[in-house]
C-alpha cells in the first residue's frame, strides 16, 4: 500500500513523534511504500539538527535522517509552520536574513501543497498527533 504520514507533534514532548517513526519503520519492513512524511504544527521540530537530547536517550531526528537515507524517504517540513518556529534551510535563512540554518539531513522545507498532494497520491494518510 502507498502510505503518507503526517506528524503533528514535536519530539520528546509528545509520544506521537516516536509513534510516527516507529510506524514508518514497521510499514517499510512490511513492504509498504511511504510516499511522503509531512511535518506540521510543532512536528516541524523533528527536523532540526540542533537538538541535543541526552546521550542515553533516542535521537529522533537522527533516526529520521538515517531512515531517509536508507529508504529514500521524502521528509517534508511545512514552510509556514517552520518559519514560526525557527526551522530554516539554507535558502530560507538567506531569504529571511538569518545567520544560520538548522534543517537536518534528509529533510526539506516546502509548502502545504505537499501535504495535500500526499493526500491525493496515497492510498492512506496516517496521522500522528492528539
Amino acid at each position: 500500500m502507498k502510505l503518507s504520514v503526517l506528524v503533528n507533534e514535536g519530539p520528546y514532548q509528545h509520544q506521537s513523534a516516536d509513534s510516527a517513526i516507529q510506524f514508518t519503520k514497521a510499514a517499510l519492513e512490511r513492504g509498504h511504500e511511504i510516499f511522503r512524511v509531512f511535518f506540521y504544527h510543532d512536528g516541524v521540530n523533528n527536523g532540526t539538527r540542533f537538538a541535543v537530547p541526552p546521550q542515553d536517550d533516542r535521537n529522533i531526528t537522527q533516526e529520521w535522517t538515517a531512515l531517509a537515507k536508507e529508504h529514500g524517504l521524502d521528509l517534508v517540513v511545512c514552510i509556514a509552520a517552520a518559519q514560526r518556529r525557527g526551522i530554516l534551510d539554507e535558502n530560507e535563512a538567506k531569504r529571511q536574513g538569518k545567520d544560520g540554518n538548522n534543517i537536518a539531513d534528509g529533510f526539506r522545507i516546502s509548502g502545504l501543497g505537499q501535504l495535500i498532494e500526499a493526500g491525493i497520491q496515497s492510498d492512506r494518510m496516517v496521522i500522528f498527533g492528539d
Partner: peptide, 17 residues
Amino acid sequence: YALESLEVVLIAAAFEQ
C-alpha cells in the same frame, strides 16, 4: 491548531478537491 488548520484548508482550496 485551529489557525494552522485553517491555513491548510485555504491552501488545499487551490487543489480543487
